[in-house]
C-alpha cells in the first residue's frame, strides 16, 4: 500500500476554538476512507484542510503537517494546483448557474483548456465516470438547475472529475438526497475506486459501511479509532465507537 496523504499532528482552530485536535493518519492510494462521527466532530474541518478551503475563512488557523505525495501542502505557494489535484464534492448539490456542459467545462477552462473538441471529450468522459451521462447527454445546454437533486450531485462529482484530480473529498454528499439518488451516488464512488483516492465524510454510518474500505471515527475534534471498515463495524476497539455505530448516541 502506498500512502497518498499523510496527516501529522494536524490542529485546526476557528477563532481559537479547536475543531480538529492533534490528528495523525494516513490515507492510502485508491482507497475510500470513510470518516464518521456526530455533528461538530471536526470531520468537515479536517476535509477542508486537505485542499486548503479553510483558507477562505479568515478566522481559521492551522498547525501541523499534511503531505500529499511527500509534499507539504502548507508550503506550496500555488494553492490552485493543490485544489485541482484534491477535488471536493459538497454537502448540498452546488451547480453553478450555467448549463450542464459549462458546469463541467468550468474547471478545465480555468486550467487553460480552450479547444472545443477537447472540452467536449472531457465533459463526456467526466459525466460517464459520474454515472450521469445517459441521463443528460441530450440536454447538455440546459441549465444545471433543471436537474433533480441526485442528478445535480452527480453533476458536481463529474465537475470535480473534469479537472483530473488525484484525490476526491466528499463532504456528506448525500445528506440532501433521497435513498435512490444516494445509491446512484454511491455506485459512482465505487466505480471511481480504480483511479482515485477518495475520502468520504458522512453522518450516515450505514453509508460508510457500504462504501468505504477503511473507516475513521471522529469525536469532538479527535480521531477515536481508524480501522478496516469490516473490523471497525464488527469489533470496535473503543467503547465510544461501539456506542456511536450502534446508535446509542449521536
Amino acid at each position: 500500500m502506498v500512502a497518498k496523504i499523510t496527516v501529522d499532528k494536524l490542529t485546526v482552530n476557528f477563532d481559537g476554538l479547536a475543531a480538529v485536535k492533534d490528528l495523525s493518519l494516513t490515507v492510502e492510494e485508491n482507497e475510500i476512507l470513510g470518516v464518521i462521527g456526530p455533528a461538530n466532530s471536526g470531520k468537515t474541518s479536517f476535509l477542508k484542510t486537505l485542499n486548503r478551503l479553510n483558507d477562505l475563512y479568515p478566522n481559521s488557523r492551522t498547525t501541523g503537517r499534511v503531505l500529499l505525495d511527500h509534499d507539504d501542502i502548507f508550503c506550496r505557494k500555488e494553492i490552485q494546483e493543490l485544489r485541482r489535484r484534491v477535488g471536493i464534492v459538497f454537502a448540498m448539490p452546488l451547480p453553478l448557474p450555467l448549463s450542464i456542459f459549462d458546469n463541467i467545462a468550468y474547471g478545465p477552462r480555468l486550467h487553460g483548456v480552450k479547444n472545443k473538441a477537447r472540452l467536449t471529450e472531457i465533459v463526456e468522459k467526466s459525466l460517464m465516470a459520474a454515472a450521469i451521462w445517459d441521463e443528460v447527454k441530450n440536454r447538455l445546454e440546459t441549465s444545471a438547475f433543471k436537474l433533480s437533486g441526485g442528478q445535480q450531485q452527480r453533476l458536481c462529482i463529474a465537475r470535480t472529475l473534469a479537472v483530473e484530480p488525484e484525490v476526491i473529498l466528499y463532504d456528506e454528499p448525500c445528506s440532501g438526497l433521497d435513498p435512490i439518488s444516494t445509491l446512484k451516488v454511491e455506485e459512482a464512488m465505487r466505480r471511481l475506486r480504480q483511479n482515485y483516492t477518495q475520502i468520504l465524510v458522512t453522518n450516515n454510518v450505514k453509508q460508510a459501511a457500504r462504501v468505504s474500505s477503511r473507516t475513521a471515527f471522529f469525536l469532538m475534534g479527535e480521531m477515536v479509532e481508524i480501522d478496516e471498515t469490516s473490523r471497525l463495524f464488527t469489533t470496535p476497539k473503543d467503547k465510544r465507537t461501539e456506542d456511536y455505530i450502534t446508535g446509542r448516541f449521536g
Binding site: 477562505l56 477535488g87 448557474p97 480555468l110
Partner: peptide, 15 residues
C-alpha cells in the same frame, strides 16, 4: 457557495 465551488476547482481569486 458559488465562490467556494470555484475555488475548490482550482480557480484563482480573479478567475
Amino acid at each position: 457557495s458559488f465562490r467556494e465551488v470555484s475555488f475548490s476547482l482550482g480557480a484563482s481569486r480573479w478567475q
